[in-house]
């Protein structure tokens, strides 16, 4: 059932979140721009429209759960949640500083509102499965979403998890691959090829949907389709561009884990219309 949403509002949320990511990373002088920028529309579609959640009641019992398995992409989530009033936008500038709630990788003990402490790649999808199983035990209380990286998909634990979710018939679980083609040491296709990705997840028993990971409408339709699928989990293969939105970062491996300096940040912010 399609609910109405304001696409312009969501696009603006994405633009503003990208601006915040750049500001945060510049202030911290470290962090991961590439993967934080590629995932933005996925997070905006989820937090801005699809997911049931409440920034005033972060422990709301039946809230949908989100696990960012590629934990280094956390600046993107910090930004989207700040724009949805989970925390003041100014606080984001404390990224990676001593005693900040906004650590380089998510720490849910320090920052309630996050659903998992990740950062060691490969672990988040299993945690999401635990959430989804608990939801089933409690009569389908909520849905669970998990974003993984393509480089991250080289971890064995991802495939242990991929094998197990269909067994448990977790139709309340959606795994989204931020398919931005890059990792640290190069392109995924060179470091350790993953293709054919869709075939692999299909073979593992998932309902697979391919989308343009920067098209919010398409993402929302995919999440709606996922909600209608019974008896199996859904895998959304989201085609994305690493560093999306900043011309000189797009598609470049070099921008995986390097923060922009002052001039670069200014240039990026200008492009983003800040």
């Amino acid at each position: 059932m399609a609910q109405c949403y304001d696409i312009e509002y969501l696009r603006e949320l994405a633009r503003q979140s990208r601006i915040d990511v750049i500001k945060m990373l510049e202030a911290a002088k470290s962090g991961h721009p590439g993967g934080s920028l590629s995932e933005i529309e996925i997070l905006v579609a989820l937090y801005g429209h699809v997911m049931k959640h409440d920034n005033d009641n972060i422990n709301m019992k039946d809230r949908d759960r989100f696990v960012l398995s590629k934990g280094h992409g956390i600046p993107g989530l910090y930004a989207v949640m700040a724009n949805l009033d989970y925390w003041p936008r100014e606080d984001l500038l404390s990224l990676r500083t001593v005693n900040s709630r906004f650590q380089g990788h998510p720490d849910r003990v320090r920052l309630p509102g996050l659903e998992a402490s990740t950062g060691s790649l490969g672990q988040g999808l299993s945690i999401a499965i635990g959430y989804a199983l608990a939801s089933k035990l409690d009569n389908d209380a909520y849905r669970v979403y998990c974003v993984i990286g393509d480089g991250e998909s080289q971890e064995g634990q991802i495939w242990e998890a991929a094998l197990s979710a269909p067994k448990f018939k977790l139709d309340n679980l959606v795994c989204i691959l931020d398919y931005n083609k890059g990792q640290i040491d190069g392109f995924v296709k060179d470091v350790m090829p993953l293709e054919p990705i869709a075939d692999k997840w299909k073979a593992f028993g998932w309902h697979v949907i391919k989308v343009d990971g920067h098209d919010i409408d398409e993402l929302i339709r995919a999440f709606e389709e996922a909600a209608s699928i019974k008896g199996k989990p859904t895998f959304i293969l989201a085609d994305t561009v690493k560093g999306k939105g900043v011309s000189f970062m797009e598609g470049l491996i070099d921008w995986h884990g390097v923060a922009p300096n002052k001039e670069e940040a200014e240039q990026a912010l200008k492009e983003l219309g800040a």
Binding site: I127, G130, Q157, S164
Partner: peptide, 11 residues
Amino acid sequence: QNMMGIAAGLA
């Protein structure tokens, strides 16, 4: 490994 992660999510 998956078992420990699932246990985390359940907890």
